[in-house]
Write a protein that binds this DNA or RNA. Structure first.
Lengths: 135, 135
DNA sequence: AGATCCTTTAGATTGAGTCCAATTGCCCAG
DNA sequence: CTGGGCAATTGGACTCAATCTAAAGGATCT
């Protein structure tokens, strides 16, 4: 995705454009992937960027809140950010701690239960945990 | 659940019985609930127990591994352990950070995708995120 | 230029969870 | 009973993702 495309994208999601936000988005939105904040920070540093840790965290929170990316809480030790936002679900390979996408169309959920009164749906996550087949 | 019942339960799940494990199980298996390690530790301490932090963590890991309880990674900041193990799913109220059970029978998932080669299913988690209805 | 507001920053701090080396407890053989 | 062996427990140090804070920077408007 070009720098210009990313700018447009940020604006579409109601996010004010700054050079730091462009840098973070440039890394994460590059392709469909799942990255943690510290991985993004490391990648930025490797490229010579001077963005601070606090800004990376602030930026990712903002992106997630505005719906530009999706936060995933699968690995208990850290939050991953998913650059793919059209609805889909995940495989989590517990032996190697790896996350992969499942196209949404394949899964259909029947009989969604009634929500508790006074609440509305935010979203539905399906996480299919898999492991290496034993013998 | 009586002390004796808990002993039987541990043994059924292939867990060697110790006094510390009985104490932890006594708290968590008392009723259907979701507790974090530090909550369990605090409850034990309040009862006058001297179980160490390391033991609480070791014990919960062991319980989860043996299938006596289920670990849930929903709140990014800590792991909750669910005393209910028959299959079921969860509501997560994002505004107040509260977790509640959904009886399994209500939800049916169609068209489970094929698993990646060499892997087998561990389990399927459905997490329905809800929030306070806005006006 | 000054004022206001938002963003970024370095560095300190938090806190769940892990690690480690030492101790305790348990069980069985002799 | 005794002691060897092994598993379980322990306190305390440690890790590290994430948060907090207070100050500095940057843009925009009048």
């Amino acid at each position: 995705m070009s720098r210009m495309d990313i700018q447009t994208r940020l604006t579409e999601f109601g996010i004010a454009v700054t050079s730091q936000r462009l840098e973070v988005a440039g890394i994460l939105l590059d392709k469909p992937q799942h990255l943690a904040a510290d991985q993004i920070l490391a990648m930025l540093r490797k490229k010579g960027s001077r963005v601070s840790k606090a800004t990376v965290y602030n930026t990712l929170h903002l992106f997630a809140e505005k719906g530009l990316v999706r936060a995933l809480h699968v690995d208990p030790s850290r939050t991953f950010y998913d650059s793919t936002i059209h609805p889909h679900h995940h495989f989590y390979h517990v032996d190697i701690g790896e996350l992969s996408d499942i196209p949404d169309e394949q899964i259909r959920i029947m009989n969604l239960p009634p929500l508790p009164p006074g609440t509305e749906l935010e979203n539905v996550d399906v996480l299919i945990k898999i492991r290496d087949r034993k013998i």
